[in-house]
Each structure stands twice: as structure tokens, then as C-alpha cells.
Nucleic acid binder design. Structure first.
Length: 362
DNA sequence: AAGTCGTGGAC
DNA sequence: TGTCCAAGACT
């Protein structure tokens, strides 16, 4: 069915649709490759609506590549705080330094150079180069995968057909209008060809779409098999010293929430009470002894691959010199200073609870 | 090559 | 309340 149509026909109808119904997004008002790069990184696995305020604040604080490259990582992470997937911020920072080193601070315009920057894969490289320089490079993000899977009636989960999807994306690319085409295809996926209840009657490709013609649009793309999420119980310590300061630690640079600050703690073992867990973890990780006091708050938080319940207790520092055994760094800080440090979301809720108690007592 | 890596919105 | 999933990259 769909083989009978010429690619040029699809491209023309998509472009006409885009000119009427495309989204007005902040990063479409510029061709500055740096600004577009920032937007592409922030948009990875993150909704447009979430990104927009971060995007504006970022460009205000880091208006160009040298400014970003010369800023301390802690400030960079503070600007990223709340966006998640913090490796994106660390990679963006490293990549900025590489652009300064290797390209005199000018963002490269060659695909292989862009692709070699940390945090930039094939889709992001194509997105940047097509948007900033109108280069004819295809993309394959979540939107495009879904659109193409429905278009051809893909009978497997997209992950299993990634090579075919790239081929198709390449073949369909409008080489005369690559910037418009890529943006249009993503908008189509985001606003018409949505995961649930797609608006097929409004779609410029409805006549060519296998899924719509077969009424399979709610079954394609096929779902990836999902695995159950483990749930961990965590004991967390808000440790106070006699100066009215609390102890925080900076997590290791790599891995989950790398480089962010947190209140120390750890997993509750089988048949272990929460106070016992907290005392043990603090001894193991920081080498100090504490007394566990009042319960502060209990929080549930969902990550991508597991869930946690944080059981947070006020604690009193007793003895020993804190040492960064399983973290990068340790500090005693006054509660009002906590806002200066980048924390993961679950920990900002703990901070709110501390400040609320603090203010209601004082 | 399957697992890892955050958070919020939508339903 | 749970589930899906959003402009993916890296290991």
C-alpha cells in the first residue's frame, strides 16, 4: 500500500501541515548551535513543557560555550537541579570544555566531530546540525520512531527494528528542507501521532499510514516487555552538631545522581530496625557515631528502575571525624545554606521538612 | 546488548 | 494508587 506513493508527496504534505500547525518553541527562534545544542540535551527523555523554563535560565546563566566551560561543575549541576538524568549536565559541561580546547570555542559543524562530543548521539547530532545549519541529517527520536512504526505497520517493538527505522528515516528525509522536515516530523509525533488516542483524522499522512488504514494505530508501536520495579527501604540521617549545623555529603561523580549532594543513609537490611540501619550506614560511610532521635518524614520516590521509601530521622552527632569513605566530600552546613547545593528531588523534600520545622520552632 | 540513568505529566 | 512514557546516550 504505502510503497505506491512517492516520498516527495509525503514530504510536501508534511511540510504544508507543519507550516500551519507546527509549534512555536523557544529554540526555533535561533540558529545559534549552542542554544540549540542545550535544548537538544535538555529535551532528551524530557517533555517540552518541563524544559522551557530551564532553557531560558540556562542561557541567561551560561550565554555561550566559554562561559559554560569556565563555570564550576557544582554551579552547572545547580542549574540542572530537578531536570534529572544528571549525566547530561556533566557531559554538557565536559563537551563545552572540549569545544573550547579543540575548536576554539566554536561549535563544530561536521557530523563526526559533533557525534564525538560527550552526551551527543546520532539523534542529537542530527537534530543540532539540521536545526542550526540546515544539514540533511536524519533523526530517530521517540516521536519519529512512533510515527514511522505506524506508517509502515511495524510488527515488532521499535528496539528490535532500530536499523530498519534508521534506514526509513534516512529515506524519507526531505533533503531540500531538512530543518523543517525534522522539526515537522517531531511535531507530528508530539501533537498528532501521540502514544494514546492519536488524532489520525488530522494527520497529513493518514492516506499513507499502514496503521491508520488498518485501524491498528492503538496497537502500534508494540510495547517493550516491562520488568517489575524493585522497592527499597532506605534509612536517612539528618545529623545535627552542637553548632546547629547539619551534615551533607556529595555523591560519587559517576552513577546515580552523580555529583549531587544528599543526606547520608542506606538500605535497610532484613530484620534490621531503622535506627540500627542508620547508625550502621553512617558508621560505614562516614566513620562517625551518632544517636538516632525523632522521626522527621517518610517519603516515597520512584526512579526509572526502582522505587524507594526514605525513612528520615533527626540524629545527633556523637564522636569521630567525618570521612568521605563512600562519597566525594562532606560538609556541615546551616539549614539556610542548603539551597546553595544541588540536591536530587527526593532530598529537596527533606530540606523543606527541615526548614518548616526550623521556622515553626523559631 | 541489555541495564543504567530522574522527574513530572497524563490518565 | 499504579502505569506509561517523554526530542536518548552510555556502558
Amino acid at each position: 500500500m504505502w510503497q505506491g506513493w512517492e516520498v516527495e508527496t509525503w514530504d510536501r504534505s508534511l511540510r504544508e501541515w507543519y507550516q500551519r500547525h507546527g509549534r512555536a518553541l523557544p529554540w526555533r527562534k535561533t540558529t545559534d548551535p549552542y542554544a540549540i545544542w542545550v535544548s537538544e540535551i535538555m529535551l532528551q527523555q524530557t517533555q517540552v513543557k518541563t524544559v522551557i523554563p530551564y532553557y531560558y535560565r540556562w542561557l541567561e546563566r551560561f550565554p555561550d560555550i566559554p562561559t559554560l566551560a569556565n563555570s564550576p561543575l557544582q554551579l552547572v549541576l545547580k542549574q540542572w537541579e530537578g531536570l534529572g538524568y544528571y549525566a547530561r549536565a556533566r557531559n554538557l559541561h565536559r563537551a563545552a570544555q572540549k569545544v573550547v580546547e579543540d575548536y576554539q570555542g566554536v561549535f563544530p559543524d561536521r557530523f563526526s566531530d559533533v557525534l564525538s562530543l560527550p552526551g551527543i548521539g546520532r539523534t542529537t547530532a542530527g537534530g543540532i546540525l539540521s536545526a542550526a545549519f540546515n544539514q540533511p541529517i536524519s533523526i530517530l527520536d521517540g516521536n519519529v520512531k512512533r510515527v514511522l512504526a505506524r506508517l509502515v505497520g511495524l510488527k515488532t517493538p521499535p528496539k528490535k527494528a532500530i536499523n530498519q527505522l534508521w534506514e526509513l528515516s534516512d529515506r524519507l528525509l526531505d533533503r531540500d528542507h531538512p530543518r523543517e522536515y525534522n522539526q515537522a516530523l517531531m511535531d507530528l509525533g508530539a501533537t498528532i501521532c501521540t502514544p494514546k488516542q492519536p488524532s489520525c483524522l488530522l494527520c497529513p499522512w493518514r492516506d499513507f499510514c499502514y496503521a491508520f488504514q488498518s485501524n491498528l494505530q492503538t496497537q502500534i508501536p508494540m510495547r517493550e516487555p516491562s520488568t517489575p520495579l524493585p522497592h527499597k527501604q532506605i534509612g536517612v540521617a539528618v545529623i545535627w552538631n552542637d553548632q546547629g549545623e547539619v551534615l551533607i555529603d556529595r555523591r560519587l561523580e559517576e552513577g546515580l545522581l552523580g555529583g549531587l549532594w544528599e543526606f547520608p543513609g542506606g538500605k535497610i537490611e532484613a530484620n534490621e530496625t531503622i535506627p540500627d540501619c542508620i547508625k550502621r550506614e553512617i558508621k560505614e560511610e562516614l566513620g562517625i557515631s551518632i544517636e538516632v532521635g525523632d522521626h522527621l518524614i517518610t517519603l516515597n520516590h520512584a526512579y526509572t528502575h526502582f522505587r524507594v521509601t526514605l525513612n528520615v530521622y533527626h540524629c545527633r552527632y556523637l564522636a569521630g571525624e567525618p570521612q568521605p569513605i563512600e562519597c566525594e566530600e562532606i560538609r556541615w552546613v546551616k539549614p539556610e545554606q542548603l539551597s546553595q547545593f544541588p540536591f536530587p528531588k527526593a532530598n529537596t523534600k527533606i530540606i523543606d521538612a527541615i526548614l518548616n520545622q526550623f521556622n515553626s520552632i523559631v
